[in-house]
Design a protein around this nucleic acid. Structure first.
Lengths: 191, 191
DNA sequence: GTCTATACCCAGATAGAC
DNA sequence: GTCTATCTGGGTATAGAC
């Protein structure tokens, strides 16, 4: 288990941002090296192949997502408010979403087309959200339906992100976020 | 205006299939040439650059989509049945969707990340569906809401395709298609 | 119209000096 | 640890024979 150096972390953070903005295949070592100010040859000291960088970036995103979901769980008192935070993410990140889509959905789509072996790891990002959402719907008393509702919320977040990217339209995004909030409110009436 | 030769059509059809299955950037001239049984150099006679092939493929898809929507309009007697045909498309194409996603959504997402000049042309594919769906909801008496409902149906088709690809789960797909049909039925009660 | 040959570039990856 | 130099392969694109 090699020590985590500062340079290694910076490579991962830079690759994370570039993989999101430009895609995995379209991002070259030179792009990462230039953005970082180090030489191309250097990061073969930290990663033997490009796939290893991808694996590290997905691990990084998994850890960040777990921390995000934990924070939402702590900061929001009710399950409905927690799902609300999930929905709010579409508003908070609307500029990057309109420019580059959802980081999870677009990565899974790209890896599917590349028939890439890291597909299960990327899918695990979705599973984190799915399980967390299912726990919220379960707490809302939805029992057996909880997983289907979690997938439904996840599905709509993906549809919204895809259309928002294609049409570059914040009105469309806001409209569909409102509809998603209405769907949530219908599920958990607030008397 | 050059004549449309048989070879040109075959290049477009092959590129169309490969761009869908593997993505635009990941598909090389050699891939297309090999799948087609012609030499690499040959199709520079028909297309000067790779971007020209992409433009021709999008034109091809636009024409095919118009023909598809016209057929649905003729074959189905009611607006609700026509929207039903749109939804049914997710079932009919579930195998390719689980493998490669929606051809329109994934192309728009890829071109967005590449910051590619053909983005408006790709978006026009979505607009064909959007306008056709809006006409159906208009005929259903939804008036001012027709466009928002069209976008909602489009949004859900995209979310379903993205999650079906990520999870490779036909059950999930069937579940969400049923929910989409229920949404449509609630809009247009059939007494 | 179709082919082969090739120019040219940039990618991922390696070797070895410092 | 970081660098420069370099190898090798594949990509787009061109030239020119047939």
């Amino acid at each position: 288990m090699p020590a985590i150096t500062d340079t290694r972390d910076r490579i991962i953070a830079t690759a994370d941002a570039l993989f999101y903005a430009r895609g995995y295949a379209a991002t070259s070592f030179m792009d990462i090296a230039q953005a970082l100010g180090i030489s191309r040859g250097n990061f073969y000291y930290y990663f033997k192949t490009k796939d290893e960088i991808l694996a590290a970036v997905i691990e990084f995103r998994l850890a960040r997502t777990r921390a995000l979901l934990d924070a939402w769980s702590q900061e929001e008192g009710s399950p409905a408010a927690r799902v609300g935070r999930f929905i709010q993410m579409l508003i908070d990140n609307q500029a990057p979403i309109m420019a580059h889509g959802c980081p999870v959905g677009t990565l899974c789509a790209e890896l599917a087309k590349l028939d890439h072996p890291a597909q299960p790891q990327a899918r695990a990002l979705f599973t984190l959200f799915r399980d967390w959402l299912r726990a919220q719907f379960d707490a809302l008393g939805q029992g057996a339906r909880a997983d289907a509702l979690a997938l439904h919320a996840l599905m709509r977040s993906q549809g919204i992100a895809t259309l928002a990217t294609a049409f570059r339209d914040p009105v469309l995004l806001g409209q569909e976020v409102a509809a998603l909030r209405a769907w949530l409110a219908d599920l958990s009436p607030n008397p």
